[in-house]
């Protein structure tokens, strides 16, 4: 059984724990460097990217985590997790891990009343589609050459992979589908 840590500094870590367990992983919340490093992969959940970023700095985790992920430790980020993995946030300075070669625009799909659910084509598996919940979601506005696009919504990439880094602008963990969690576990 694969052991996965879900970063539990702030945000929607509970639904990821449930989704990962459903997908057959041994999933636990992690908060410290030893807890993170002791697992085989990491999930960075949704939440407030500014808050999670500040807490990574406060707990002295930002630089060591950046190095770990840069060395190929498998990671899956959703929504705020995607923002934290990205290289740049348009128009803002905030603490980032910067290991995924994409730029993002925060809240670019609108405020909460514009949040929505949909179903998206997914190129990572044969099943071919994935239900997606977008909540004050970020947009991926640039992708680097090493970034594979796995899912697109209205002409913009919403799920991407770069080697062992998987990231989605939406929340697969809030649906009953384990397609993306299965896919992530296949990278671990």
């Amino acid at each position: 059984m694969k052991s996965i840590g879900v970063l539990a500094l702030q945000g929607g870590f509970d639904p990821h724990l449930r989704a990962l367990r459903k997908a057959g992983a041994d999933a636990r919340p992690v908060k410290t460097w030893d807890e993170i490093r002791g697992r085989q992969g990491l999930v960075i959940p949704g939440g407030e990217s500014t808050t999670i970023g500040k807490l990574l700095v406060l707990h002295g985790l930002l630089d060591s985590l950046k190095e770990l992920l840069g060395d190929g430790f498998p990671v899956f980020g959703t929504c705020a997790g995607l923002i934290l993995l990205s290289q740049r946030v348009v128009g803002r300075e905030q603490p980032l891990l910067g290991v995924l070669d994409v730029d993002v625009a925060r809240n670019a799909y609108g405020r909460q009343t514009e949040s929505f659910e949909t179903s998206l084509p997914f190129e990572g598996t044969e099943k071919g589609s994935v239900p997606a919940v977008f909540i004050r979601a970020p947009q991926i506005v640039r992708t680097g050459p090493g970034v594979q696009i796995l899912s697109v919504y209205e002409d913009l990439p919403v799920c991407v992979r770069q080697k062992n880094i998987l990231a989605a602008a939406f929340h697969p963990e809030l649906t009953d589908s384990a397609v993306l969690h299965d896919y992530f576990l296949s990278l671990v």
């Binding site: 945000g11 929607g12 909460q112 809030l174």
Partner: peptide, 8 residues
Amino acid sequence: GLAEMLKG
């Protein structure tokens, strides 16, 4: 979902 994201 938004309520979940506000946890912690």
